[in-house]
Design a protein around this nucleic acid. Structure first.
Lengths: 148, 148
DNA sequence: TATTCTGTTGCAACTCGATTGCAACAACCT
DNA sequence: AGGTTGTTGCAATCGAGTTGCAACAGAATA
């Protein structure tokens, strides 16, 4: 997950406070994990990391907190081509949509930003008449090292 | 699901026979459901429809047959933005990739084919060095009737 | 047509990610 | 500090999908 450096530490906490969301130790631990993640994590991985700070945290709290972050538009939920199992992956939402490429052989994830993608979304809004809320382009394929 | 008219009845059965895949009554029933579907169906809906022809068909047979069709590249598996639950949806694979738009209010699904999408895939292959196997663009938004 | 081989099926048990009801608890406001 | 209300841990539960296995049925062979 690139762009980790664009992240202001404690940004999630500040944004949630602004909106009058109650802050707890468990939430702080989970937000911290998601904010500082350098790769896409699933709920189980987030739970394990959060428990290093607070071992009493429960699975359900992780799911509820991820739901909270989703509802507030702070994170995106990804499938990443269901590379392993059916779990969802989470990442901080950024100003710009990006494409996810998943290598079907080695599992490597690459992100890609493209003006063409923005134009395509524009074309779709115009021609289909939809107002786009989320656009998720996920590609499965073979990365430079793995393609034969 | 448009393009239903581009479908030759019994095409799946012919293609599987060509490849030496054993044909059974249960498979025929399931293939028939998938081939004649006018909208995207999930595994449960496919099971219910197939059971109208052969009430003894089991869930596991549906999943195994869908897996067979996936492995042979005859169908695509879609998430459709997880509109209801986490089930997957299936559709016949066509020559041309298309984009799925899901209305987050009324659940309507619209399909869209775009040259720009093809160009975008070309750009991605060139700039990321990936060989693309599957490209899935799913959009959640509000359709002309539902956007306020 | 009968025989055999091998892939397929139904069944039941199970996996795994995710959700929920509820009593205990802890933020936050005053 | 006290009271209100949102949050938590726990355990039970859900629902999609998978698996092991014995019985079975295509399809090739004799």
């Amino acid at each position: 997950m690139p762009f980790a450096n664009t992240e202001i530490p404690g940004r999630f906490q500040a944004l949630l406070a602004e909106r009058g969301v109650r802050m707890t130790g468990q939430r702080r631990a989970i937000l911290n994990v998601v904010e500082t993640a350098k790769k896409h994590l699933d709920a189980g991985q987030i739970l394990r990391r959060a428990r290093k700070h607070d071992p009493s945290i429960d699975r359900s709290t992780v799911y509820r907190t991820l739901g909270l972050l989703k509802r507030h538009g702070l994170i995106d939920e990804l499938d990443l081509m269901h590379l392993e199992g059916e779990a969802h992956y989470y990442e901080r939402k950024l100003n710009r949509d990006h494409i996810h490429l998943a290598c079907l052989r080695c599992g490597r994830i690459t992100e890609f930003v493209s003006d063409l993608f923005e134009s395509l979304k524009g074309q779709i809004e115009k021609e289909c008449g939809y107002r786009i809320a989320v656009a998720r382009l996920e590609i499965g394929g073979y990365c430079p090292k793995c393609r034969t």
